[in-house]
Design a protein around this nucleic acid. Structure first.
Lengths: 217, 217
DNA sequence: GTCTATAACCAGATAGAC
DNA sequence: GTCTATCTGGTTATAGAC
């Protein structure tokens, strides 16, 4: 449980600094920059996006960007967190409980995960990170460190803690669970497979959950 | 079984035409073009690769390319087939038998699949197809039609035929099986996760097979 | 008849000129 | 801002060499 909790609170580090009266305004500016950066980065790619362009698109001057973010990579990190972790935080809030049955817990996690397929920005993020992973390996590592690693770690810990499931390989199981969903989104949405080989996402999720729980559904 | 068989023989259509004495030479030229095209396309991407560049890299004249391939997209199709289907054909030859136990069959298929992770060209292909899937949706659809669709179809048919496995959702199961492996390769190799969150590929495969067979290993 | 060499056609993008 | 001029890149055509 610790893992999910700390995963959930790892973002939005700027707010801690800017306390009191100006925090709200500052948060808005930050949001404004991130929103503009998302549009620019995910349209033109990491290399072809200049900080000037981001400033223009966000309606701020460059110096404002650098007062909120350390550098170009730091800004991109904020984009990653906004489009991935923040979505989970918004969906679960602070009441993600592991007390319910594994069936329910896994379905909820899987469903929130699966919802990302309908967010064009998330699809574009996958395209960008993967597409630029040769020219910008640091960006890919950032994604692994920020998103994939923590998610795998949290789910893995959950599987290990649920003794009644008798899962001898929690980490591999966690990878299979997340990886299957990512691949589904990759095939259907990123690669436009939904037009060619459609398959209902809920049906997919049901089969996956049953398989993980060893029910041979 | 039909599906795998026709999947295996779908490529290399050019050889049938050029029979007799000059076939070998012609085949070499074709191979020569594909080899050069792989280097160029996977380095610079689809858009930034001109047919002039391919001709230069391959050491042939443009017209020669067009005598072997219909157009730029047809050439890229040959690249896809070379780096995916052809590998399977080379590994299995004509003796892919489904008579053995599902455990053995699944492990062999999974292992051959997993071997792709060590081919830099395959990794680059994934980057290119996904990275360009917004600007060139036709390329992505080509990949789905040529690789993902047939693979899923073949494995799905196998699961459906193996009654003793009692798999009520063969297509979803096939997607999970292939998708998990693809995601593993994506995380570890494409996104450089092997340096950050290493995990043994055989251990991963063992867990996946056990899960599909409902053994709760 | 396959490969080479060169040129030409055509669509889309870019860049100045007015 | 339109209108050229030019360039680029995919594609096709023509001629000659083995």
């Amino acid at each position: 449980m610790l893992y999910i909790r700390e995963l959930m609170s790892s973002s939005k580090p700027a707010k801690a600094k800017t306390q009191a009266n100006l925090s709200q305004y500052s948060q808005t500016k930050r949001q404004q920059i991130v929103d503009g950066a998302i549009r620019v980065f995910l349209k033109y790619g990491y290399a072809d996006t200049s900080m000037n362009r981001v400033a223009e698109e966000s309606g701020v001057i460059k110096q404002t960007i650098y007062s909120h973010f350390s550098d170009k990579e730091g800004l991109f990190r904020a984009i990653i967190e906004t489009l991935t972790l923040e979505h989970f935080r918004n969906e679960f809030g602070d009441n993600l409980s592991f007390e319910e049955s594994p069936d329910v817990v896994l379905r909820r996690i899987g469903t929130v995960f699966m919802q990302r397929k309908d967010d064009p920005s998330y699809i574009a993020l996958m395209r960008t990170v993967i597409g630029e992973s040769a020219r910008f390996p640091e960006l890919a590592r950032l994604y692994v460190n920020t998103v994939i690693g923590p998610a795998k770690q949290a789910l893995s810990a959950y599987f290990a803690a649920q003794k009644q499931l008798q899962i001898s390989e929690p980490e591999a199981t966690a990878r299979i669970y997340c990886g299957s969903i990512v691949s589904y989104i990759m095939t259907q949405e990123v690669l436009h497979g939904n037009e060619i080989i459609p398959f209902d996402s809920e049906r997919f999720l049901n089969t996956l959950i049953a398989m993980v729980l060893g029910q041979k559904k």
